[in-house]
Write a protein that binds this DNA or RNA. Structure first.
Lengths: 146, 146
DNA sequence: CCAATTTCAATTGCGTACGATTTAATTTAC
DNA sequence: GTAAATTAAATCGTACGCAATTGAAATTGG
């Protein structure tokens, strides 16, 4: 039985999958009142950091292609979070911009998430450690996949 | 600016989401020749461990509801991996069983994954550490979500 | 300057995820 | 023994993810 090496990888992959789904479900509790999904929240996070980004720039940060972003952004436009307009300089690029609602809701949405996160009671040091180790794993996987 | 506490949670959630998607993409490379998806592979893993399980038992192990499993298992039945039959003792339960192909393919599928995993070159100690920390996080999140 | 290449967003198709509801079968309680 | 509660799978609807292709716009090379 020399399956031991990949058994560990199996367990870790499933563990990541599981943790990711649970974490997102946890976030959804805070986002549901706003009618936002987790991937939509990620778009808002990116735009709060820097508004007026072309679609492909958002895609690079979140690792989404246009096949995922185009319909997602249309939904966000319909709900009044963002606007979508062609760049005047380059008609291939679609510039994504926050609406007034998208900008001002930041405080309220953060507050809703903060309430949930505060209940989690995980040692911040454990968070930091997990985060650091994840970065290494992500870098390794990214290297394997190009 | 007291957003610091949730910024860490934001980063960790995204990091898990990212790692999970990359890890699954990595596994898909090995699974694609067999026409298997990662969630379908998880079902096979569970059945290789213990064959002839009812749908809800698989759901408990993988944290999937019947809304996810029913169509997934039908696809696996169509491709000849498993059979679906009602339990004679309890007509509500659907017993999932490996086909001959499902049973015997284990070696070949494991071999394909092993080849990919071996290229990863991650320190097994780091794996173990990540896994242990993930378990703690998962337990915490599960506790928060019931 | 203009044909070939590259870069974008959109589209197509398939397979999850998951909240919510429905329907059928079994248990439970009186 | 049967009505009520519970359990199980299936169904419905919405929203991702992502491989693959398409089509339009810009860039580049000769």
């Amino acid at each position: 039985m020399e399956d031991s090496d990949m058994t560990l990888a199996n367990q870790l992959c499933f563990s990541m999958y599981r943790a990711s789904r649970l974490f997102i479900k946890f976030y959804q509790q805070a986002l549901q009142p706003f009618g936002l999904t987790y991937p939509q929240y990620l778009v808002l996070l990116a735009l709060w950091e820097e508004d007026r980004q072309p679609l492909h720039a958002l895609g690079e940060q979140l690792d989404f292609g246009s096949n995922t972003l185009t319909p997602l952004l249309k939904r966000m436009e319909n709900k009044g979070w963002i606007t979508r307009e062609l760049a005047s300089s380059d008609h291939r690029q679609l510039i994504i911009q926050l609406t007034e609602t998208g900008r001002t809701s930041k405080t309220e949405i953060f507050q809703s998430i903060r309430i949930c996160v505060r209940q989690q009671a995980i040692d911040p040091a454990d968070y930091q450690d997990l985060l650091a180790r994840n970065h290494i794993l992500i870098a390794t996987l990214e290297k394997m996949l190009d």
